[in-house]
Design a protein around this nucleic acid. Structure first.
Lengths: 190, 190
DNA sequence: TAGGACCAGTTGCTTATTGCAACCTATAGC
DNA sequence: GCTATAGGTTGCAATAAGCAACTGGTCCTA
């Protein structure tokens, strides 16, 4: 439902070329006007520092100066990223109730919905970039155990590997996209 | 085991400041020398276009010119990103056996291990950026059904929300990091 | 076996982004 | 009032991306 609150307006901008042209350094409207979700997600969280800002937000940071201190990010860049995250509906900007100078940046529902991705990235990096020993672990509060590695599953809960799944064109796919999926499907099999 | 094949050499570079300083535009060694997995993953796949190149690779693209055509990426940037992905061990570069002009870029095991993340991003974007109707769906080959939404789970398969999990310092965490997690833990509860 | 097309890049130039420091406005606290 | 703090903005130098043209091999056809 929160989707509905921001998507009506936001969707228009997503579909206008000028918006994407200004996003990130990838000024290729043709790429971002496709409805490939990865292209769109790149436009929204693909810029330098954006993922780190989100990580900070998940760690509970809410204030401009705290983001700056924790990340060592330049203030103008931080300002820009927070603005874009708010625009994109991932975070909300709220003047503090107790201190009129202060502003609080918090994740919205769409923003929080990214946490499986953040966890997936963390698990991947811990395994492949930190050689299994990172500074960060996730545990299940109820049991204290490490959480399970993120896995792709079927509706009935079977774990699915890369070869068990297929990409198929969705409702918005065009002809070129459909042809690509057939090629991709063959490639995945081989 | 494939980890072992590239990590011995790669790990050294990961730990040297100069490597990170040159990665992306975020020339802040202090950030990337931390062992925060998100910081590291940003260094490796956070640059503009890198995620798109990976998406292409998952779609079965293997040749330089095909990446260029499908993405509309500048050739020098593509060259740079492929080089870095190979260096980082996510892709491998192999001269074609049948055509001596051609080169094949393929995902390695560490690269393929990113697919849950790609799927998570796709599902998130489809829901929040494409309003549920994207050009791309994933189905279970065995049944033809859509796959399940990516979920974070406990060891025994319970679905875990953001509030059911806690971040705790791992083996490589320092004092400052430990203090942060306590703050983060409190923030997640509230 | 000469000529053209094709693959995988590289080079040089222009434009857009980032990093850094200094500055600004409004509020808080004493 | 005076100083410190919060959340920015502005201008300038350094860096990265976008674009077109060029290179060095290899394939293919006549």
């Amino acid at each position: 439902m929160l989707i509905a609150t921001y998507s009506a307006e936001y969707r228009k901008r997503l579909q206008s070329a000028t918006y994407f042209v200004k996003l990130g350094s990838m000024s290729r409207p043709n790429v971002f006007q496709t409805n490939c979700p990865i292209a769109r997600v790149t436009a929204v969280i693909g810029e330098a520092w954006t993922l780190m800002v989100l990580r900070e937000a998940f760690l509970g940071t809410r204030h401009f100066n705290d983001f700056e201190r924790q990340l060592g990010i330049a203030r103008n860049i931080l300002s820009d990223r927070l603005k874009k995250l708010v625009e994109a509906g991932l975070m909300q900007r709220q003047p503090s109730a107790t201190d009129k100078r202060a502003v609080e940046y918090r994740l919205t529902e769409p923003g929080r919905a990214l946490y499986p991705v953040l966890i997936g990235l963390t698990q991947w990096a811990s395994q492949y970039l930190c050689c299994g020993e990172s500074a960060l672990r996730f545990i299940d509060r109820a049991t204290g155990q490490d959480i399970a590695p993120l896995s792709v599953q079927s509706q009935d809960g079977r774990a699915l590997g890369l070869k068990d799944i297929a990409m198929v064109p969705g409702p918005d796919a065009d002809q070129a996209m459909e042809e690509r999926f057939e090629a991709a499907s063959r490639a995945a099999q081989g």
